[in-house]
Simulated scan of single mutants.
Amino acid sequence: MGRGDLSDAECELIGPLLPPERGRWARPAGDNRRFLNGMLHVLRVGCPWRDMHERYGKWNSVYVRFRRWAEQGVWDALLQTLVELGLTDDWQHTIDSTSVRGHVSAAGGKGGLVRTLLVDHAAALRAKNHARCDNQGLPLGFILTGGEASDYTAAEPLMEIPVAAPKALLADKGYDGDRFRESLLIRGILPIIPARSNRKVPEHPDYRRYRNRNRVERMFGKLKQQRRIATRYGKTILSFESFLNLAAPPYG
């Protein structure tokens, strides 16, 4: 077993959530565990699919299964199911964003940032990954935008991620806005957000609780240990978001 491959305990948790594969043209289907380990290898080391280690089988077979599962929504469902299993801490959630530098060949391609989000090539190479995490720093969902997008524009989409509502939401002053604060209070969520410097009547949050906001920063740091997350090599949004969802569960 290679470094970063799934353990038996992790396979017992993840295995039933993956779709069964049937052989095509009278050939037996490969083992899902071996294929998933190959995907995790590419995620971790950031290599092209063609350079995937041979112990995981043919690179094209692993890539085709990864892409097929992405188009079927398997990776989105995997993260959502793990969240629904009650593995998260919903006392308070945190939202934030981080910049992701794109590889020089990642801006083009059908379904890429340039054509899908209607941003220019410079913004596409400086993509932003907006994320929401629980009180323990476990990812709950992601929103991908161009690098010039404001954090505030992704605040409501992040709160619409179908997970349990927390008691409080932690965010930095980039998310300070009357409309967003009112939206949180209507949902029964206490906003713990410092005020912008230009606010006439500044809000004073509980700064002792606000110190826990560093958990989202640590989450980004852990995710970026996977080189396919630290640098966006994929040409399409679907591929990068699929790798994000693959990196989010507590394995690897």
Rank of each mutant, 00 (worst) to 15 (best):
M1V: 14
D5K: 00
D5W: 01
S7K: 09
D8N: 07
E10Y: 02
E12A: 08
L13E: 09
L17T: 04
L17G: 10
L17N: 07
P20G: 00
E21R: 00
E21N: 03
W25Q: 14
R27H: 09
R27W: 05
N32S: 09
N37D: 06
M39I: 12
V45E: 14
C47R: 09
P48M: 03
D51R: 03
M52F: 01
E54Y: 12
Y56G: 11
Y56H: 11
Y56L: 13
W59M: 09
N60W: 15
S61K: 10
V62Y: 07
Y63H: 02
R65N: 07
Q72M: 05
Q72P: 11
L78V: 04
Q80W: 00
V83A: 14
V83K: 04
L87S: 13
T88V: 15
T88P: 04
D89C: 05
D90L: 07
Q92R: 13
H93G: 09
T94H: 08
T94I: 12
I95T: 06
I95D: 06
R101I: 14
R101N: 14
G102V: 03
H103A: 15
H103N: 14
V104P: 01
A106T: 05
A106H: 01
G108F: 06
K110Y: 11
L113Y: 02
L113F: 03
V114A: 06
V114H: 01
T116S: 12
H121R: 15
H121N: 11
A122E: 15
A123G: 08
L125W: 07
R126G: 15
K128A: 13
N129I: 13
A131T: 13
A131F: 06
A131H: 02
R132Q: 12
D134S: 06
L140I: 02
F142T: 09
L144R: 05
G147H: 04
E148C: 08
A149L: 01
D151K: 00
E156Y: 09
M159L: 04
E160H: 07
A164W: 04
A164T: 14
A165C: 04
P166L: 04
P166K: 00
A168G: 09
A171Y: 00
K173G: 10
G174F: 13
R181D: 15
E182P: 03
L185F: 11
I186T: 13
I186G: 06
I186A: 12
G188K: 02
I189F: 00
A195H: 03
A195G: 03
S197A: 12
S197F: 10
S197P: 14
K200D: 15
V201H: 09
H204D: 12
P205H: 08
Y210M: 05
R211Y: 12
N212F: 11
G221T: 02
Q225V: 08
A230L: 12
A230H: 08
T231C: 08
Y233M: 03
G234H: 08
K235P: 00
I237M: 07
F240P: 05
E241C: 06
F243Q: 06
L244R: 03
P249Q: 09
Y251I: 15
G252M: 14
